[in-house]
Amino acid sequence: MTSIITNQSAMTALQSLTTTNRNLSQTQSRISTGYRVGSAEDNAAYWSIATTMRSDRGALSTIKDALGLGSATIDVAYTGMNSAIDVTKEIKNKLVAARQPGIDREKVQAEIAELQNQLQSIAESSVFSGENWLSVDSSATGFNATKTMIASFSRSGGEVSIGTISIDIGAVKLFDANDQSGLLDAEDTTANGSLEYSVSNLDISSFTDTDDDLEDLEQMIAYVDETIGGMTTAASNLGAIKQRTKLQGEFVSALMTAIDKGVGALVDADMNEESTKLQALQVQQQLGIQALSIANQNSQMVLSLFR
């Protein structure tokens, strides 16, 4: 039946063209944005997962930056500790030389004094971003002997947790302005002269060749050697923490890459597939327009019946 009220052919052609235009618009959007799932209406589940993982990826980026900052702080402290060890070894060498009877210990002490000044300079200069782990004041407001830096971010069951790496400053400090409990300012007392001394302030200029003075000098040598051992242990601990920080930074970088890949697999558009669809849909659109035009012309053919 031919009707001028209801043009079924035109309605069918229009419906097909509308569907083609909708698919074409979707494909063009995917090509222009690069996303297969660009909003919740595309795929609510995938969009929700991708949004959460992007948020976590941003947190991991912050973790990576914090690890870089912490690694630099550790590196400065480690460098300072190594330099202090070298200078302390020189002090020990001077003390061993001063053990020789008849040597001018005042001149030796002058050299030791300069080395002691160097130790102080090294400790005070080992600063990064306002952090100094070698020269501290434990009585200062807000001081904490345990330094922590964020090292990880994780999500489990919707709950997030932050992991940290802790560094005991009390085990690596060289000077403490509060109680002289650092490795270099901690004091000992000679057995014979009852002289209080530390590596940073010992003075042998008044020592003579008496048995008591020589025994006290040997005690100082042993004490400095023991201090070098403590500093070596502290440097080893800093080195171990530095290595852990480096490995954690590499892991966080790899984790960020893995998240990027996972999110991409969920929401990124396949450009090869979408470009193929675009060409096919453009052809379908042209055919749909032509079909609708033909269907609309069919109604005009009814006029020929009244001529």
Rank of each mutant, 00 (worst) to 15 (best):
N144C: 05
A145V: 15
A145H: 14
A145P: 06
A145S: 13
A145E: 10
K147D: 12
T148Y: 09
T148Q: 12
M149C: 10
I150P: 01
A151F: 02
S152A: 11
S152R: 06
S152C: 14
S152D: 05
F153R: 00
F153K: 01
S154N: 03
R155E: 06
R155A: 02
S156F: 15
S156Y: 08
G157Y: 10
G157E: 11
G158D: 02
E159P: 12
E159K: 13
G163I: 11
G163R: 08
G163M: 15
I165M: 04
S166T: 12
D168M: 14
I169A: 15
G170T: 06
G170M: 14
A171V: 15
A171C: 07
A171E: 07
K173R: 05
K173S: 11
K173D: 14
D176Y: 00
D179G: 10
Q180Y: 13
L184Y: 01
L184S: 01
D185F: 00
D185K: 00
D185H: 02
D185I: 04
A186L: 08
A186P: 07
A186S: 15
E187T: 08
E187H: 09
D188G: 14
D188L: 15
T189N: 12
T189V: 15
T190L: 09
T190V: 12
T190K: 06
A191T: 14
A191D: 10
N192H: 13
N192S: 11
N192W: 08
N192E: 15
G193H: 08
G193F: 13
E196L: 11
Y197N: 05
S198D: 05
S198A: 01
S198Q: 01
V199S: 02
V199M: 13
S200K: 09
S200D: 07
S200F: 05
D203I: 12
D203Q: 12
I204Y: 00
F207G: 00
F207T: 02
F207P: 00
D212C: 13
D212L: 13
D212E: 09
D213H: 02
D213C: 02
E215N: 10
M220V: 02
M220I: 03
Y223I: 13
Y223E: 07
V224Q: 01
E226L: 15
T227W: 03
G229C: 14
G230M: 05
G230N: 07
M231K: 00
M231V: 04
T232Q: 05
T233A: 07
T233E: 11
A234S: 03
A235S: 07
A235K: 06
A235H: 10
S236M: 09
S236A: 15
S236D: 15
N237G: 07
N237F: 08
N237S: 11
N237D: 10
